[in-house]
């Protein structure tokens, strides 16, 4: 049994008097202990909503969540609020994108860590402070004992993100979800944070779900990658296979359209035509069809299912040919 088993997760947002919108439309994936799984896609593909749904952090009203999220055997979606609160922090940790708004601006950093330790590990205050200092040191914040009494706004963006990671890992959760943790940071700071995450995850054996739009980040960090589009997973592969031979036209298109640092200047970028809003509903066919260079008649009649493909999964009637994929893939 995997550590986390997400089965057919659906999240439908509904505003009064309007049609529902399925932000997450039947997503299923597993996370094994110690594994790093990536959820990749652009804005609006449903990746963030997926993580919020798993952590039960969506608003109480205005949405309907269905499916199952089985963590170590129990379905998180069926737990009461109280039981879920116990789980959060202790078994499941989350790191968000914007550290400034994720940290409480009026409480010192130290207190935000000790709070978690006291609640979930029943530590007395003194012991918690020592542990908090160690944690800050482990995430690479210099002079940690001084930092305990400082407020979030006194730290830089990179340091805040480290503090957030410290809070998330304080109780040694078995699963850590990181939602675009480095998107708001400069690239050299991003490199530091990603290296830190990689080390910590390896040291503690924590499983990690990495949510990002940056394929470069995924290439360096994740064992298995899920590509999302329009609320569904369209391709899943082990990372080397995905980049060597992307078979879904969307994945293939994304890789071809991203400028690579090590690519020569003459190579033209091949954009995906249209934009994310040029889609058709999954009931009517494949949501990517309007933009897909490989679209055939079947694509506008019904949505393709996820079928096994080279050890992973693929949702496409007319995938990119292996020869072409290999050419455009890893060079």
């Amino acid at each position: 049994m995997a550590l986390l088993e997400v089965r057919d997760l659906r999240v439908v947002f509904q505003r009064r008097g309007e049609q529902g919108f399925a932000a997450v439309d039947g997503v299923s994936f597993d996370v094994e202990p110690g594994q790093t799984v990536g959820l990749v896609g652009e804005s609006g593909c449903g990746k963030s909503v997926t993580s919020l749904a798993i952590m039960r952090l969506l608003a109480k009203r205005g949405n309907k969540v269905s499916g199952s999220v089985s963590f170590e055997g129990s379905d998180l979606l069926k737990l009461s609020d109280r039981e879920m609160r116990d789980r959060r922090g202790r078994d499941l940790g989350m790191v968000f994108q914007d550290p400034l708004s994720s940290l409480n601006p009026v409480i010192p950093i130290g207190l935000q860590i000790t709070e978690v330790l006291e609640r979930h590990r029943d530590m007395p205050r003194k012991k918690a402070r020592i542990e908090a200092t160690e944690l800050l040191d482990k995430v690479g914040i210099p002079d940690p004992s001084r930092r305990l009494t400082e407020y979030p706004h006194q730290l830089s963006g990179g340091m805040r993100q480290r503090a957030l990671i410290a809070i998330a890992l304080a109780c040694r959760p078995r699963l850590l979800i990181a939602d675009e943790p480095t998107t708001a940071l400069d690239v050299t700071i991003q490199a530091q944070i990603l290296a830190l995450l990689k080390d910590l995850v390896q040291d503690t054996g924590t499983a990690l779900i990495m949510i990002t739009h940056d394929l470069g980040v995924v290439a360096g960090l994740c064992d298995e990658v899920n590509v999302l589009y329009g609320g569904k997973i369209v391709e899943r592969q082990e990372r080397h296979s995905l980049f060597a031979e992307p078979r879904h036209p969307y994945t293939h298109g994304l890789l071809a359209s991203i400028p690579r640092l090590d690519a020569g200047r003459g190579e033209k970028l091949v954009p995906i035509r249209g934009s994310v809003s040029d889609n058709i509903p999954w009931e009517d066919g494949c949501a990517f069809a309007p933009r897909c260079p490989n679209a055939v008649a079947a694509c506008r009649e019904s949505a393709p299912e996820l079928v096994p493909e080279r050890g992973g999964l693929l949702r496409c009637y007319n995938p990119v040919l292996p020869v072409v994929a290999a050419r455009e893939g890893t060079r």
Partner: peptide
Amino acid sequence: MNTLLNKKKEPIDKLAG
């Protein structure tokens, strides 16, 4: 992103909006 599920099958060269 256009969030309503539209029932029309829009031809591919129709731009959003």
